[in-house]
Structures are given as structure tokens and as C-alpha cells.
Design a protein around this nucleic acid. Structure first.
Length: 1053
RNA sequence: GGGCCUAUAGCUCAGCUCGGUUAGAGCGCUUCCCUGAUAAGGAAGAGGUCGAUGGUUCAAGUCCAUCUAGGCCCA
């Protein structure tokens, strides 16, 4: 423990993961998260909704990404005084869980589940959810995501389900929850239809057979005119040819009857003739699609009975871009097909069972899985000479998002929420939503809403919220909003009933309309509905917590990755709009995906998944967090790997840490006590202190603004560049003052670090907490014990001084140039030079303290201004046009003005500008043109005997002439350096006093020592300097090239 | 086929909103310098037809159009 008033000792090196474990303990022991909520209890609420992760499988790096963003904004808002309740949630239901359990039990499909028993199966599902939740909890706590697990919502809980039921009843009563028979994507393995947003998750690129089949024409005058004529019909699903019912053509499109080189007569769209029939096909007749209507043909198979069918129908959706322009129709397996065939009164024949296999009674393919039948059927067509062409066709085809089985489009009864009926409201709500990044709003998401289709919400499964609709034998329907309501209908006490299947299925009652027995419809609902209902269901609304719900709707902030546009972002908005006529969120942050170091999507199949906990245990959670927040744009897909994470640790976190360690080291040495030691007011501190403070306040304001607009990258850039400035300019330039324990310097760095620590706290809560404890909480009784209980720093605009910022920028630029000039002149920096000449705009009015810094950095004894003070004949002057300034005034004529400037006598131009501020030049066609110093960039460079560096109008020239005196000063500095090395090697503390010995045969060394030994002693903290080899034990060192030996020993007192 | 995003150094990315004549940073590489916090820092160098083409403009990495490639989403 440290004594009150002083900093704790901060080691130079830090093991981030170890430190983080300590902080986690601290947070737990001191209930910091809970207290941060208590402390803001009176603050204006800032509502956050946690998108519940599916409690299935193990968490991956993408979960960390979303959770970092879900954490940083609530922390930030809390520091701004807002009250941000954060309730965790778990998505418990759904196919993913069922599939995982099926796998564990070795099941092959629904029959196995039925045989096993639904009650037992669902019990296993519940158990699986509880098991996987733990892994998420561990990861979540490790990364420092503050969210309340104790009060978490579970979509499988009875109260939650009753809320969902209530909302479904609202929708049902509004006439927007209806049963319909439609063609929809269906997973034959899982035995259930899929909603469109589930469909969106599972497109995979596959190669299917694309076949062109001859359908010989059997009727009409077409056959009389062209005996043997056949339609060329295209499909990529040969297995549906078994149920071929019709052929569709586009009514307005042009079709041809053509004879091929080998004498066949075929019908195809004109646009596709040459690609299908070759260039030597001869057109016999040209006609429109409409002319082909009702032409009958011989179906490709006669395996199933399809009465009154097999003729050409018209359909607008047919295109002539692809295939043959004649499209095979199987109404049971395509939404378009069904609509078209219904219009002609054609029958819907479906020989495929719900498990995806053909009926046993079908010849040739009976019992076969639908996809597997392709090969057999194509072979049969070939044998019978009907196959015209067969090419592999690569396209993306929907697959089941969980089990990867190819989906089948299949006509079956299903419950729909008629979201298309509220499309206008959805578009209105979307318009009122702030999207980050904004392109999603009317791009990807708006597009999806515009093309909205009804939500197929029922599932023929087991582990899900049961659809709360009862139907009597006469077909009357009633929706139920709670167990109480159900109990009243059934005349039994049901408040303790598990609302899941199979228990709820046993509840029946008499129909209120007709008295017949009503039983529940068999379906459960899409688990996406569960998660979309969380704004009210997490509170059990309206059965409970009515007031709390009303205060927490809608959310101020939600955040997930971009794949949720059609998932949670949609269901949340859709349910909110359906039930409350208002979307459930105002601001939504939509993250790009995390990719591996090669830019590939992370997946278990590829084996490139980054395990979150080991990743954080290696680099630290702060490192992972900082990378996610500040390393690249959050909106964009980003590559993440060990390398890039290690990089931000070194670049930002360790630099911050070492600055803190530095401050602690010297402040403790000087007995600096932040709340006691008297520090001069900012206005009376040295210019660099004022600069550091000015920048700190500017950065705090910048980070604040960036976080307001959810831009963590911009905020992160501001913070890390300030940390770099602080460490590599402010501290480096002010080191001497820290050695001397200057209260102004220590006080300044204290204040600057306080601001950095506060603004970085939401990003990297661990290291900020540690620094807070070591430097701030321990030194001031007024500061809270946790940085996360502190308020966002107050920005003092009065301390922000743009002119100072510009001056320091100029100083640093001059120093850079000077170093360049030294390198050019091949003179090492330790060798002092007599003077440097500087020329730059603004240099003449620079603060003398800053000029002194330049002299020190460049190790020159004197610094002069190049312009004005030195005779013009010593310098070369170059004048260049400033296009930005001139362009605005002269537009087209700019190049001519520029040319005149370049050609003019630069020396007199410069002199005139310097003396009068303007200069007049003559430009062809413009006459006399008056220029100011803004219009011209003057670069002055000295001539002989100097080493010069110039850039954008600034120059630094070094006088390379060395006197003996300068050489001796250089030698003294060499010796200081040598002694410092020796001190370090000997393991002395920086504040240790030493005895110093030296010996040399070299006359120059001896002379330098004679002249500078007092100065050297001061630099290296030597109490005595002896011109001899030591006769006691001491640490010896030396430099053969220089011809000197030294020895050091710690003073004993 | 449609929508959105992306394309800048060997690698990872800024810069583009609001056009300005030498396009930046970090990592890596070469040489050198500096160091009483920082396995740090600095200077110089090698490395760019700013995806391609066309257009607007006195001036285009930046604005417009078209195209190409990749990614995501949808058909």
C-alpha cells in the first residue's frame, strides 16, 4: 500500500493479462459495475438493448467484436452521467439448439425425435442451452463487457413466452397473422420451412446440372406446318421435371422455329438461338410468345398422373437472357410456377414427401432423395433421346443455414405475419432511425424493406415458443395471450404450466363460437421472433413491469454485425412497428465482419477461428478491445490476427503505460503530492506545459464528439496520437525538469494523464483502471476509487490555444529538418555546432522557449533567423506559386500567374513581400497582378559551407565549421554518454549518486575533462571525479576508439 | 441478374465529405543518429502509373460516368 498523497510505484514493464485479472477481482470485490449504475440512478436513462446470442456452440472473435462496441458506448454514456441499465439476454430456442442436441443423440431426423419423446427432447435442449451459456459468460467477463447476468432474460422462460404470446395475439387480432399455403423454402432434413431472413444466411455456391430438354409438340397447326417440331425447355432442377405441368413463355418475346444443321426443328427464343442452335441454324418461322399459348406437348416423364396439363402458358417473369426462353413449370416447387399455373387452373401435383424423398409409388425414382434423382432422370432422358444439352451450371443456391442441406421450394401450409401490410410504416420508422454507417439505411436495409415479403413465422419443430393459436374442428381460431387466459378457457389452473411442447399441446377447450373441441395448432415460431420481441418480453410486459417498459422503449442504442440487417435489426423493427406502431431503436451501429489475417471469413470448417479467451490471455483484453475499436473502420470488414493486435499494444498501450511509469518514478523521487504540492496556474507554466494541456483538452473534446457519433476509430486516432505526442515530445523535451522535480512539469503531466486515462477508460477499461488507482485515486480523496465511477473530463476551452499548437508544430518541423541537415552533413548530434539558421513562415515570432528547444534538440549553441538578418547574398531564394490561394482568384489563369512567379527574380520578390507585404507582377492578359505572401511560397536556402534541409518553404541550415572548443564539448558529451551506459550496465538507480574515475593518454580528452568535468559530474550525478584508475572495486568501462577508460561506483552513504 | 461496400507502398491502413501541383502513417527492409521512462524515439533511403478507361476542371487519389476484380447481401 502506498502512503496517502503520493503515487503508487508503477513498474516500467507490465504484464497486461496478469494486471487485467487483478482488475477483474477489484471490480468484483468492490462491486464497481453495480455502483456505476447506482451512482447514475438519477441520471437520464440511456437505453441499450442486448441482442441475445444464441446459446449454442462456443463464442468466437466476432462475438467479442460486437460486445466491445456494446460495452464502450454504455461506459462512455455512464461517464457522461446517463443511467445505462444493461440486461444480458440469451436466445434459447430454435433449430440450432435442436440440431446440436440431435447430433449429440445421434438422430437422423424428426422421426427419431418423435420416438425419443418431445418432452425428453426439449429437456435436453434446455440443458444444452444452460451448458453453453457458461462459455459466453466466461468470455464476456474476461473481456470486461459489463452486462447484468443476474437479471438476464431467457427467451425460454415462461414469462418471456407469455409476452411473446401476447404480442402474437395483438398481431392475430389485427388480422395480420394468417395461415396460407404457399411455396416456400423448406429444409427436408429439418422438416421445416425457413423464413426469408433465415434463407439469407445460407446461400452457397453449388454446381447443378443445367439441362435443355426436347418437349415434342403434339397439337395445333404448329405440328402441321413443322412435323417433328419440339420445344427446347430449360431447367436447373431436373428432379422437378417429374412433376412438369406446363411450359412458360414470355408473351411479348420473339421466338423462332428453326432448323438446325442436322435437320431438327426446334422452338427457342430468338435472343438465344445462336448460342443454343449454332450459327448455321435456319429460321423457318418467327412468332411471339403469345402465339405459342396453349400449344400442347409431350411431357418429359409419365411417372405421375397430371391431368389436363402439359401445354404452353404465358408468364411475364420469363426472361430470354438465360436458358432457352421456355421455362419448365412445376407448381409445387416454385412460387412463380404456382402463381402462373393457378391462373390457368392447372393442378398442383407433388410427388415429394416432406422428408425430401420421392413417394415410394413413383416409378424410376421412388424413395429417392430429391437431389439424388437428378442423375437418374437425366440418364433416362438421354436414353430416350430427349436431352438436348446438359451443362454444369454454377450458381448460388439456398441451403439450410444450420445443417447445410440444399433447400427445396415446396408448397405447404404455413403461418405468415403480413409484414407487407405495414410496409409503409416500416419505411417511415426506418426513415426515423440513425444508422451507423448511414449507407445501410436506404442501401442494404432500405432495399430489404422495399422488397419486403410476408414473414413465414411458423416452424414444424419442437424446441420453440409454441404458436398460441387454437383451432376447433370447425376451423374457428383463437389466439391466447397468457397461461391465465388459457386456463380460463380450459377451466383449469395453468399458471404453473410449462408453456413448451408437448405440455401445452395437451390443453384443449370448447370453441366459444361453435362448442367444438379446440386444440393448439402444431407449430412453434421462428426463434427470430423471440429475439425481436425482447424490448417488452425481457420485462414480461404487459403482464408485468408496465411502467418500466414504457420508460425503456425505444432503445437509444443497439449494435450488432451487418448480418443482422435481415435478422435482429429487422425483427426488432418489424415487431415494434406491428405491436406499438413504433420501431424499437433510434440509433443502430452496424459492424463489419471480422476476417482472418488472410482476409478469409472465420469458420470452423477452415479452422481459422480465433478463440477469444486464449487471445485475450495472450495479448490482454484491452489490446483486443483497442484493436476492435480503433484499428480500422468498425463499419468495414477487417482482418484480425496476433500480429496486428501485438502492434497496437506496443504502439499505444505500452507507450501510455511507460509515460505513467515515468511520471510515477520522478514524482515519487521528488515527493510530488498532486493534491498538496503547489503547482503554478497554467498561464504561468512554460510554453510546452501549456501546449500539452491545450492538446489534452482538445483531444477530450474531439473524443467526446467522435463518440457522440459512434465513431470509435476517429476517437481512437485522437487518443493514440496524443499519447504519442505526450510521450515522445512533451516528456522527452521536458525530461530535465522531471529530474529536477519541477512541480509545473509534474503537475502538467498529472493533469494530462488524468484526461487521457478518463477518455481511454471506455475503450481499455483495465489499464485505465490500474492507472487510475496508481496515480489518481491514491492521491486525491476527492476522486472515486474507480475510473469507471468518474465523470467524463470537463473540457476547458480557455486552455485550448490554437496559436500555441501551430508554434509547437513549427518547432517540431524545424527540428525534423535540422536532424535531416545533420544526417546530410554527417555530424553526429552529440557534437555541438556553433549555430543554425532557420527560415520559415512564423519563425520570427516563435516563443523563445520553443526556439531554445530547437537549439537543444539540434545541439547548436546559437539560433538565428535566416530571413532579414543575414545578407541576401548569403542565401538562394526560390519562389513558388501557392496554387490553392491563386486558384480561387485566377481559376483558368492560375498556370500563367504561377509561371510568372516562377520566372520572376525570386530575391526581389521576397524582399518586396518582406518589406511591404505585397508585390506586383505583370501577367499577359491580366496586366498587373498584386500578390501577397499567401500567394507565394518563399524558400530561402544558404549557400556555401552549410548543411541545409528545406521543405515546403521552411529551411534549416547548420554551420558545420568546428572549433577546438566545440570539439572538446563534443568529447565531454561522449564521456557523459559512456558513463550513463556504465551506470545502466552496473544496474544503478537513476537517482543514485556515484564516484567517477577516468584515465586517458589522449591530450584532447585530458583537455576536455579539464574544461568540463564539473558539468560532466552534474550530468551523471557524480559526487567526485578522479583522474585515475580506481584503487577500489568499481564498474569499469571505456572506449578504445576515443582512448579513454572510466569507472563508476555507487556512493556508499 | 440486382443492391451495398471495397480497391492507395511488400503487408495493414489513413487521406476522398470540402479538388490545389513533392500522396501520408504503422509494420518490414537498408544506412545512420539519439537515449538517466519507454525490447522506445528520430533522420535518410529503397518501395506508389492512388484498380482500369473516359469525362468535368486552370488543376483529379479526391467530383461524374463506364468497366474490372474482390467481399457481403439478395435473386
Amino acid at each position: 500500500m502506498s502512503e496517502p498523497g503520493t503515487y503508487r510505484s508503477v513498474p516500467g514493464r507490465i504484464d497486461l493479462p496478469v494486471m487485467e485479472r487483478e482488475i477483474l477481482d477489484f471490480w468484483r470485490d468492490r462491486r464497481v459495475f453495480e455502483r456505476s449504475l447506482e451512482a447514475t440512478a438519477d441520471g437520464e436513462p440511456w437505453i441499450f438493448y442486448e441482442g441475445p446470442p444464441t446459446a449454442n456452440g462456443t463464442p468466437g472473435a466476432h462475438h467479442v467484436e460486437a460486445r466491445v462496441f456494446k460495452d464502450v458506448f454504455p461506459r462512455y454514456r455512464t461517464m457522461k452521467g446517463r443511467h445505462v441499465p444493461r440486461r444480458a439476454g440469451w436466445d434459447c430456442h430454435g433449430l440450432p439448439v435442436e440440431i446440436a442436441v440431435e447430433k449429440e443423440l445421434g438422430f437422423a431426423g424428426k422421426q427419431d425425435i418423435e420416438a425419443y419423446g418431445v418432452a425428453e427432447f426439449n429437456a435436453r435442449c434446455r440443458e444444452s442451452v444452460l451448458r453453453h451459456v457458461d462459455e459466453f459468460t466466461v468470455m464476456t467477463e474476461r473481456m470486461g463487457y459489463w452486462v447484468d447476468f443476474d437479471d438476464a432474460y431467457w427467451t425460454m422462460n415462461t414469462d418471456y413466452i407469455q409476452s411473446v404470446w401476447w404480442s402474437l395475439k395483438q398481431i392475430f387480432d389485427a388480422g395480420l397473422l394468417v395461415e396460407d399455403h404457399r411455396v416456400s423454402p423448406y429444409c427436408p432434413r429439418c422438416g421445416t420451412g425457413l423464413s426469408d431472413h433465415e434463407l439469407a444466411q445460407g446461400y452457397e455456391t453449388v454446381v447443378d446440372p443445367s439441362v435443355f430438354v426436347r418437349f415434342p409438340v403434339t397439337s395445333g397447326d404448329l405440328v402441321e406446318r413443322h412435323p417433328g417440331v419440339a420445344l427446347i425447355v430449360w431447367t436447373t432442377t431436373p428432379w422437378t421435371l417429374v412433376s412438369n405441368t406446363a411450359v412458360a413463355v414470355k408473351p411479348e418475346a420473339e421466338y423462332v422455329i428453326a432448323r438446325t444443321a442436322n435437320g431438327e426443328v426446334l422452338v427457342v427464343a430468338r435472343d438465344l438461338m445462336s448460342s443454343l442452335l449454332g450459327d448455321d441454324a435456319v429460321v423457318l418461322e418467327s412468332l411471339t410468345g403469345r402465339d405459342l399459348e396453349r400449344v400442347s406437348y409431350q411431357p418429359p416423364f409419365n411417372l405421375v398422373e397430371i391431368p389436363d396439363a402439359h401445354y404452353v402458358v404465358l408468364a411475364e417473369y420469363v426472361t430470354t437472357d438465360d436458358g432457352s426462353g421456355l421455362v419448365h413449370q412445376a407448381p409445387a416447387f416454385g412460387a412463380d410456377d404456382l402463381a402462373v399455373c393457378r391462373a390457368y387452373g392447372l393442378p398442383v401435383v407433388n410427388p415429394v414427401r416432406s422428408d425430401g424423398h420421392f413417394e415410394e409409388s413413383v416409378p424410376l425414382v421412388g424413395g429417392m432423395f430429391f437431389k439424388k434423382a437428378d442423375e437418374t432422370l437425366v440418364a433416362d432422358l438421354t436414353e430416350r433421346g430427349l436431352l438436348f444439352r446438359h451443362v454444369p451450371y454454377e450458381h448460388s443456391y439456398p441451403h439450410c443455414w444450420r445443417c447445410h442441406t440444399a433447400l427445396i421450394y415446396y408448397a405447404q401450409p404455413s403461418w405468415y405475419i403480413r409484414t407487407t401490410a405495414v410496409k409503409e410504416q416500416l419505411l417511415r420508422e426506418n426513415g426515423a432511425t440513425n444508422w451507423f454507417p448511414p449507407t445501410i439505411q436506404w442501401g442494404r436495409y432500405g432495399d430489404w424493406l422495399t422488397n419486403n415479403v410476408d414473414w413465414a413465422v411458423s416452424r414444424n419443430r419442437y424446441w420453440g415458443t409454441p404458436l398460441p393459436i387454437w383451432r376447433c374442428t370447425e376451423g374457428h381460431l383463437v389466439a391466447v395471450a397468457s397461461l391465465t387466459e388459457l386456463g380460463a378457457l380450459a377451466g383449469v389452473e395453468l399458471s404453473n404450466l410449462d408453456p413448451h411442447r408437448p405440455f401445452v399441446d395437451d390443453i384443449t377447450f370448447d370453441c366459444a363460437t361453435c362448442g367444438a373441441v379446440a386444440t393448439r395448432v402444431p407449430e412453434v415460431i421462428d426463434c427470430w421472433y423471440d429475439s425481436g420481441a425482447m424490448p417488452f418480453a425481457q420485462l414480461g410486459y404487459p403482464h408485468r413491469n408496465v411502467a418500466e417498459f414504457e420508460q425503456s422503449y425505444p432503445a437509444d442504442f443497439i449494435c450488432e454485425a451487418i448480418d443482422q440487417t435481415r435478422g435482429w435489426f429487422y425483427t426488432l423493427m418489424a415487431i415494434g412497428t406491428l405491436v406499438f406502431d413504433r420501431s424499437s431503436y433510434r440509433n443502430v451501429v452496424c459492424l463489419g465482419h471480422i476476417l482472418d489475417e488472410q482476409g478469409r471469413k472465420m469458420s470452423k470448417h477452415v479452422g481459422n477461428v480465433l478463440e477469444p479467451v486464449p487471445l485475450m490471455d495472450e495479448h490482454g483484453a484491452d489490446a483486443v478491445r483497442w484493436f476492435m475499436l480503433a484499428g480500422g473502420s468498425p463499419w468495414q470488414a477487417r482482418r484480425v490476427g496476433h500480429h496486428s493486435i501485438a502492434d497496437v499494444v506496443r504502439k499505444t498501450l505500452l507507450t501510455y503505460w511507460s509515460t505513467v511509469s515515468f511520471q510515477s518514478l520522478y514524482a515519487r523521487a521528488a515527493n510530488f503530492e498532486p493534491s498538496i504540492t503547489v503547482v503554478p496556474p497554467p498561464a504561468e507554466r512554460p510554453v510546452l506545459d501549456r501546449w500539452a494541456l491545450s492538446e489534452a483538452h482538445r483531444v477530450a473534446a474531439e473524443v467526446d464528439a467522435a463518440l457522440e457519433s459512434f465513431d470509435t476509430q476517429r476517437a481512437g486516432r485522437a487518443i493514440s496520437s496524443y499519447i504519442d505526442d505526450l510521450s515522445n515530445w512533451y516528456v522527452r523535451r521536458s525530461r530535465r525538469r522531471f529530474w529536477d522535480g519541477d512541480p509545473a512539469a509534474l503537475g502538467t503531466l498529472h493533469e494530462c494523464l488524468r484526461i487521457v486515462t478518463l477518455v481511454i477508460a471506455p475503450f481499455t477499461p483495465f489499464i485505465a483502471e490500474r492507472v487510475w488507482g496508481d496515480l489518481f485515486a491514491s492521491t486525491s480523496p476527492d476522486e472515486p476509487e474507480s475510473v469507471h465511477l468518474s465523470r467524463w473530463p470537463a473540457v476547458d476551452l480557455g486552455l485550448i490555444d490554437p496559436d500555441l499548437v501551430a508554434q509547437v508544430e513549427l518547432t517540431r518541423r524545424i527540428v525534423e529538418l535540422g536532424r535531416g541537415a545533420r544526417a546530410e552533413g554527417k555530424v553526429r548530434t552529440r557534437q555541438p555546432l556553433s549555430r543554425a539558421l532557420v527560415s520559415a513562415s512564423g519563425w520570427d515570432t516563435i516563443d523563445p522557449e520553443l526556439a531554445a528547444q530547437v537549439a537543444e534538440e539540434l545541439n547548436v549553441l546559437a539560433l538565428d533567423s535566416l530571413s532579414g538578418q543575414v545578407a541576401d547574398e548569403l542565401v538562394d531564394v526560390v519562389a513558388k506559386a501557392n496554387f490553392r490561394a491563386l486558384g480561387q482568384r485566377y481559376a483558368k489563369d492560375t498556370p500563367r500567374v504561377a509561371a510568372v512567379i516562377a520566372a520572376a527574380d525570386a530575391l526581389s520578390l521576397a524582399r518586396s513581400l518582406r518589406e511591404t507585404g505585397t508585390v506586383s507582377v505583370t501577367v499577359d492578359g491580366l496586366g498587373d497582378v498584386s500578390l501577397t505572401s499567401d500567394d507565394v511560397i518563399i524558400t530561402e536556402t544558404p549557400r556555401e559551407g552549410w548543411s541545409v534541409a528545406s521543405d515546403a518553404g521552411a529551411s534549416v541550415a547548420l554551420d558545420l565549421h568546428l572549433t577546438d572548443e566545440l570539439r572538446r564539448m563534443g568529447t565531454a558529451r561522449e564521456i557523459v554518454r559512456m558513463v550513463q551506459e556504465a551506470r545502466k550496465s552496473a544496474g544503478f538507480e537513476v537517482s543514485d549518486r556515484i564516484e567517477l574515475w577516468w584515465w586517458s593518454e589522449d591530450a584532447d580528452i585530458t583537455a576536455a575533462m579539464a574544461e568540463h568535468s564539473a558539468w560532466i559530474a552534474g550530468e551523471v550525478l557524480a559526487t567526485t571525479v578522479v583522474a585515475n584508475r580506481p584503487d577500489v572495486e568499481a564498474f569499469e568501462s571505456g572506449d578504445a576508439d576515443l582512448g579513454v577508460g572510466i569507472a563508476v561506483r555507487r556512493t556508499t552513504d
